[in-house]
Amino acid sequence: MKKEFNIIAKLIEKNSKVLDVGCGDGELMKYIDENITTNIRGLEISKNNVQKCIEKGLTVIEGNAEKDLQQFPKSSFDYVILSQTLQAFLDPERVIDELLRIGKKAIVTIPNFGYWKVRIHLLLQGTMPVTKNLPNEWYDTPNLHMCTIKDFVNFCNKKKIKINSSKLNIKNIFSELGIFLIEK
């Protein structure tokens, strides 16, 4: 986890204004708050996690990313982070549009369904992959829209969203996680 935080944090400029959408228990926010910028707040749907964020002294708004992003005006944040929750939304395309409306830039991370272990699991076992990043069974997973790194890059290209896609085929096999900095 720390490694992911580190990579995300390096993408953020010092003292910029940040929103962490689906901020969970606030671990990433706390890391950014302590190391990069204190001008950070989170949006979180789970009441339990909201309490954990408050305990950590973080600014958190209880809410649903699919409904509650519209209250933020255009470009109100320098960065909007969406860490490993894109695949759980009913309408991920709309969420991405909203992220890029309220943020000048967005940082999106996805569990990569193209990771070699996932591919081998499906190839050899013939059942839906269960890994560290994808711990649920097919029937109880919150993940509605799984994609690969390549899928996400193609999606951004199609929508004319700026995204770094170097060494795409290699990353699509060897990365458990895709971390992207995107902008309109």
């Binding site: 204004k17 707040r41 408050i54 600014t59 958190v60 708004i61 209250q71 005006p73």
Partner: peptide, 15 residues
């Protein structure tokens, strides 16, 4: 909460 977010104020909210 919405009125405060609309003008970028520092606001937390819990139900």
């Amino acid at each position: 909460v919405i009125a405060l977010n609309a003008i970028g104020k520092n606001v937390g909210f819990a139900e």
